[in-house]
């Protein structure tokens, strides 16, 4: 349990998201800002994965 006790100061959120949800309305679409951020990040990460040159274990040379 010692390690869990050490984690104690980390268990309170640095950024408090327990606030009233922010929601965007557009036409018939309703989405929370949090979900929209996740979806936009997903698209950005996908595009970045396609565009950024690969320097991993298979890149060689």
């Amino acid at each position: 349990m010692a390690t869990l006790v050490l984690l104690h100061p980390l268990t309170a959120a640095l950024v408090n998201l327990d606030t009233r949800a922010r929601v965007l309305h557009w036409w018939f679409i309703q989405i929370t800002v949090a979900n929209l951020v996740v979806i936009i990040l997903m698209v950005l990460v996908f595009v970045a994965a396609l565009l950024i040159p690969f320097r991993g274990p298979g890149s060689k040379r």
């Binding site: 104690h8 309170a12 990460v45 996908f46």
Partner: peptide
Amino acid sequence: STAGHFVNSIHIWSVEVFFFTMVVHLWG
């Protein structure tokens, strides 16, 4: 327990990361 809450936070955020990476994997 605050330690328990922290482990719960790990659990739920790893689920968000799981679905995130799985969707990008599916698109690819």
